[in-house]
């Protein structure tokens, strides 16, 4: 039976089915913690544990799915071009806000983790916690962290932003929909962007663009910021 689960088609099939199932559940019960990705991941992990299947065996098929992250990141460039016109009038302010927000996100998480005495490889895995998962994974690989830890926490950050972001911002006195959108995209990538679209169409566009811009900024700066604070980048 174990050999059967080593067939790549098993990993591919269970990933697709779990995701489709997760989406169905989300449609029936509109509750933020029922994020389709989270549900799919929990379902697959439970399945693997119950049937005693190694992650490596699952990933023989999983790899075919995650391969598409590469072209998806390129596709974000197309998305950015398409929506670029809509932020043109606020472009400079928008870029400033994403850059300062994004950099403070990297710096604060590194400092907090250092102060709390978390080991270096976890810090390297979490420096890019605010950006979209495929970009965060690449940053972690280059930094020498563990991409799987990155993926887990990045998804958690997205769900946190999606569930509490607008509430926190409104409590802190932020009113503009554009500001809420930009903040959600900068801090909580695609999952936050989904929430921004619920606030308004314009908030969603700003959020999607903020996600792309912060992805680039974070990819460019994280290696240097990690070197600056941890001092072991080679």
């Amino acid at each position: 039976m174990q050999e059967f689960f080593q067939l790549p088609v098993f990993g591919v099939f269970i990933s697709i089915i779990a995701f489709a199932g997760g989406r169905q559940i989300r449609q029936k019960f509109d509750y933020v913690l029922l994020n389709p990705v989270l549900l799919a991941i929990l379902f697959i992990i439970s399945f693997l544990l119950i049937f005693n299947i190694d992650f490596e065996d699952y990933n023989r098929g999983g790899k075919f799915i995650s391969f598409f992250l590469g072209p998806s990141v390129v596709a974000l460039g197309v998305f950015f071009y398409e929506k670029y016109e809509e932020v043109k009038q606020n472009l400079k302010v928008f870029l400033l806000s994403v850059a300062v927000g994004g950099i403070s996100g990297i710096v604060t998480v590194i400092i907090f983790l250092m102060l709390l005495k978390v080991p270096g490889f976890i810090i390297e895995s979490l420096a890019a916690k605010s950006v979209t998962t495929p970009i965060a994974i690449e940053i972690t690989k280059l930094a020498g962290g563990i991409p799987e830890i990155t993926a887990g926490i990045v998804i958690a950050v997205g769900i946190f932003g999606n569930a509490f972001g607008p509430f926190i911002l409104k409590k802190l006195g932020v009113k503009s929909k554009i500001a809420i959108g930009t903040a959600l995209g900068t801090a909580a990538h695609g999952i936050g962007t989904a929430r921004a679209f619920e606030e308004s169409k314009l908030a969603g566009v700003y959020s999607g663009l903020a996600m792309c811009v912060n992805g680039i900024i974070t990819a460019l700066l994280t290696p240097y910021l990690l070197a600056l604070f941890l001092g072991n980048f080679t």
Binding site: F19, A40, I41, I45, L48, L49, K63, S66, P134, P147
Partner: peptide
């Protein structure tokens, strides 16, 4: 896009 990063999420185990 979100489907594609499920395997990494599972890797967290």
């Amino acid at each position: 896009l979100v489907l594609f990063f499920i395997p990494y999420g599972v890797g967290l185990m």
